[in-house]
Nucleic acid binder design. Structure first.
Length: 346
DNA sequence: TCTGGGGTCCTAGGACCC
DNA sequence: TCTGGGGTCCTAGGACCC
């Protein structure tokens, strides 16, 4: 028997859930995001169906751009409770297999399995998810989380693929370093500036040569990742939120201090109510303000009286945190306010 | 046709204490 | 007379992911 890590990744998850309850949409371009009105500004695509992606629609793209690229698309509002429910059904199916299960967001999971035939296991899992939830997924098989994750990308949509440290160089070496899981745009840009373009380039770089730009630990991690090394442990402990936040982007900028404070207070109260309903206590309150310039400072304060469930205290603290900002006089235009509560471990 | 929302983790600097 | 080193707490910001 051998230890394998599998990564299960649902195909176009949010769009697929919508199609499931509106079968007439199957095969059509579907775009989910915001309130579903592509005529309104400041809303972006959460997920596009493959049919919409074929027209160049991408997640994160403004809905208006999506509507322009794909006028025949069906636009739907985002419905998180529906996706949460569908996700729970998928995870319940996965949990019935003799594996270690780590839920990794709505539409992803890592599975750790002791088996001699991981591909057969992957096929059984894919079939079970499809039969029990009518949702299609890709399954990546790897010797660690990184290889499993990338294997799933190769498998998408709806397939099964195996990738290990042995096959990694041939499969990944020529790809841009930016394709690596954990390497975002900022890191990619720095790497390019250092002459490191591909995964193979990065794999062949001495960590010391990168430490100046990224720090020792991150440099080490980058090079190891480029060589296909990753975590092999699958953590089965249920996920426990460390924070919870809510933010609102306004259709039109706010320039009135009382209006800004009113939104912060309302967000803080609503958030506090959610957190308390979950049986958690708040340790810190953070406030985020995004100006029209897109500069987005954040301020945070620890609750004076210690962890609390007192909504008045949470709201009061949020307003005190807001006072730490220099909003300008008169206030500079604000396009977003957000409130985050940090939570005491249960 | 300007750029959502909800998360996690890491680093770094200053305050404060010994 | 002006200079240590370590440890912890706190806050701000960066970066990434789904």
């Amino acid at each position: 028997m051998g230890w394998w890590v599998l990564h299960v990744d649902l195909d176009q998850f949010i769009a697929a859930v919508e199609v499931l309850r509106r079968p007439e949409l199957r095969g059509r371009p579907v775009v989910v995001g915001g309130d579903g009105d592509p005529g309104r500004a400041r809303q972006v695509v959460a997920t596009a169906s493959y049919e919409a992606r074929a027209h160049g629609v991408r997640s994160g793209m403004p809905l208006r751009v999506a509507a322009r690229r794909c006028p025949e698309a069906v636009f739907l509002p985002s419905d998180p409770p529906a996706y949460q429910a569908a996700s729970a059904r998928v995870m319940a199916t996965l949990a019935r297999f003799p594996v270690r299960l780590q839920v990794y967001g709505w539409d992803e999971a890592f599975l750790g399995a002791d088996t001699d035939d991981p591909l057969a296991l992957a096929a059984r899992i894919r079939r079970a998810v499809l039969d029990e939830t009518q949702l299609s997924c890709a399954v990546g098989v790897g010797d660690n989380k990184l290889t499993a994750k990338h294997a799933a990308r190769f498998a998408k949509p709806g397939g099964i693929h195996r990738l290990t440290r042995d096959t990694w160089p041939a499969a990944m070496g020529a790809k841009p370093a930016a394709d690596l899981w954990g390497v975002g745009p900022k890191t990619a840009k720095k790497l390019t500036a250092l002459g490191v373009h591909t995964v193979a380039d990065l794999a062949g770089t001495a960590p010391d040569a990168l430490a100046g730009q990224f720090g020792e630990r991150a440099a080490e991690w980058l090079v190891l990742s480029a060589r296909g090394a990753g975590e092999t442990t699958v953590d089965t402990a249920p996920w426990v939120a460390r924070s919870r936040s809510r933010e609102t982007t306004f259709a039109a900028d706010l320039t009135d201090r009382d209006a800004i404070a009113g939104h912060v207070a309302a967000l803080a109260r609503a958030l506090g109510a959610d957190v308390v309903a979950d049986g958690r206590r708040v340790t810190h309150v953070a406030v985020k303000v995004r100006f029209a310039s897109f500069r987005t400072p954040t301020r945070v304060m620890k609750l004076r009286e210690g962890p609390t469930t007192d909504l008045d205290a949470i709201e009061r603290t949020a307003l005190a945190v807001l006072d730490k900002f220099d909003l300008g006089e008169p206030p500079r235009p604000v396009r977003l306010v957000g409130v985050r509560t940090d939570l005491e471990p249960p």
